[in-house]
Write a protein that binds this DNA or RNA. Structure first.
Lengths: 235, 235
DNA sequence: TGCTCGATTTCGCCA
DNA sequence: TGGCGAAGTCGAGCA
């Protein structure tokens, strides 16, 4: 990875246009060719960037730019799209090359724990949390318009479609609505109830769910994790 | 900004858990206290990070870690949530402090051109592009379920609701459907047509729109910009 | 401050 | 490879 600290101006042209006036910034050039322009604040997102695969070419500035203090111009062009990043370098304060990766040069992957898939797995083991007597038919029940997170059998008749979200919002209600509309046409499943299950559900989503005749269920991830059978742990 | 290149292992704990095995990585500590851990590839997203406001504290490793080669441990704790990043440093290869920002220390803002708001503004000036004789009633027409991007009056009767997107996809169709369903109950507006306007519309979205009785309109941003009246330019 | 929605979203899974 | 849903989404605009 190459790290350059320089006063620079940046222009991006591609899906939209974006411009940065001159200032001192950090420019990262990664091993795969991607380029990131970072400021000394903001979030983890760079001000401007170019994803791999791309090519960096250095050229001399135009006369008028040179007069304004530009010493070099970098053009970073994407290899497949016509996205292009143009970096006008004024003064360069640092320019170092560093070696990254593990001993083999690769990067050990990131291991995550606690996302929606885990909620779904935990609730699948505890179908009775959704309603008394309910039993799991299957997770990721396939339909023509996508998989239903959990499909449960109600021994008193019919089935229950469960949409699991970390946070319940309006589009989750829309999604569940489409599933229930489809499933209830299946005579082997009807009648079908829909349940939106999430760690938190926004008021608007609750209102819309009620309007659509759908139920809401708040999940307690920590409690569910604590109660699960040790043999079925995901990690 | 402080730039550290080090062999390190990282653990994040917060909304989820995430772990990185030891490898050489770049650690950026920004002026606002935020920390980014970058690998030499992937996208602009760091492998792990902590947003401001947060506090970095350095401590000695536990005995077992020290035996394993850990020289220092950084704890980066968020000030408001209980999110925490723990970085175990093995060997440190670089550790430099650089000065960023413009002469006043601040960062000139990013100027963008071509986002959805611009499309909406341009189309508002050119309502006739949606259909002959149409006139703008207003932008961001408020309804109980959210603002309609553009509401147009059709002199031959009724109104047209326009949903403007940079790229038209299925959720845009869903959104427009909800608006039209609501608006057509208003006798002062009915009958109501719905139009999805975007620079590009995915085939699936076009099919769904047709099924819902909605129209699609492909926008040419460059042409619209070229035609607009100079006095009304956004930038 | 909280909510809503766009984003050069990016990222990962699965068909 | 394309479609689709999730994200430690982030960030801006507005009530």
């Amino acid at each position: 990875m190459r790290l350059v600290v320089a006063r620079c101006a940046v222009d991006y042209s591609g899906r939209l246009g974006a411009h940065l006036d001159p200032a001192r910034r950090l420019i990262m050039v990664k091993a795969d060719g991607s380029v990131l322009v970072h400021a000394d604040g903001g979030s983890y997102k760079p001000l401007n960037w170019m994803n791999a695969p791309c090519r960096l070419s250095e050229s001399e500035p135009e006369a008028v730019e040179a007069e304004g203090g530009v010493s070099k111009v970098w053009r970073v062009a994407h290899r497949k799209t016509d996205d292009c990043l143009r970096i006008a370098l004024f003064e360069v304060f640092e320019d170092i090359e560093v070696q990254l990766g593990d001993d083999s040069g690769s990067e050990p992957g990131l291991v995550k724990d606690g996302v929606e898939a885990h909620l779904q797995a935990l609730l699948a083991e505890r179908a009775e949390l959704v309603g008394p007597g309910l039993r799991l038919i299957r997770r990721e029940y396939a339909t023509a318009i996508g998989p239903v997170d959990l499909l449960l059998r109600d021994p008193s008749g019919g089935t229950v479609a469960v949409e699991v979200k970390r946070r319940g919002e309006i589009d989750g209600v829309e999604q569940l609505t489409r599933y229930v509309e489809l499933l209830k046409r299946d005579s082997t499943l009807a009648p079908v109830r829909g349940v939106l299950a999430a760690q938190a559900i926004k008021p608007q989503a609750q209102v819309l769910a009620q309007d659509r005749g759908l139920d809401c269920l708040i999940l307690d991830y920590e409690a569910m994790r604590g109660e699960e059978s040790p043999g079925l742990r995901l990690f």
